[in-house]
Design a protein around this nucleic acid. Sequence first.
DNA 1: TAGCGTTGTATTAATAAAAATATAATGATA
DNA 2: TATCATTATATTTTTATTAATACAACGCTA
Lengths: 111, 111
Amino acid sequence: MNIKSKFWITLDGEKVFGKGPCTLLKMVEKLGSLNKAAKELNMSYSKAWGIINRAERLLGYSLLETKTGGTGGGGSYLTDKAKILIKDYDLFSNEARISLEGIFKKYFKGL
Amino acid sequence: MNIKSKFWITLDGEKVFGKGPCTLLKMVEKLGSLNKAAKELNMSYSKAWGIINRAERLLGYSLLETKTGGTGGGGSYLTDKAKILIKDYDLFSNEARISLEGIFKKYFKGL
DNA sequence: TAGCGTTGTATTAATAAAAATATAATGATA
DNA sequence: TATCATTATATTTTTATTAATACAACGCTA
């Protein structure tokens, strides 16, 4: 018996950021391209684009700086705000997961 | 900006119990009928039944004692194990929610 | 024994989510 | 100027989830 959890940031009750966007942004940071990141995560480009677009719209600021055309066709790079966001989200979610497991054991130990 | 979370109990990686089943069980306890509980929660009976059936199957013990026929058509009543489960889950989830909010503020204060 | 509101299923319909596809625009390079 | 991989989007198709419906069995009561 174990506990599993999900957390996401909301604004006016709407989901604006969570694990999915975070994973995607990290992959973009690594590969320099939203298209490549989507492929790597077995996700359609349109879905990946939708995730970023929605998050940016709701957050009110840009997460990706995009370049289209040119050598390699272009690419996508994280804005400073995106870097801060994924860092804070990571710290938060790790600490949250550990805390939750502790509380879970307190009430469901032995089961 | 706020945090929202979901947690559920798993067994061998499979979701076996969470907020949905917990809410449903409480309503059954209150109304004495799975059918009435489903209506009260704007849920089809078949869905409600599926939730309970799945949880019981995976947990390996009964959550509801059911009676069919007779005055009022029958009804459903919580087993002792179900009562313990919802009590522990409630204690756990309340404490978890409070802890999570604290951690969230630590990393996203001001935003 | 007829009627009632349940439980327990199976089957079908409706809705939502996800994925796939298509297409235009971009701009460095050869 | 032709090529290329990308972004940005709209549209369509597929898949998955959820809900609705239907119906037999049950057993108390009148």
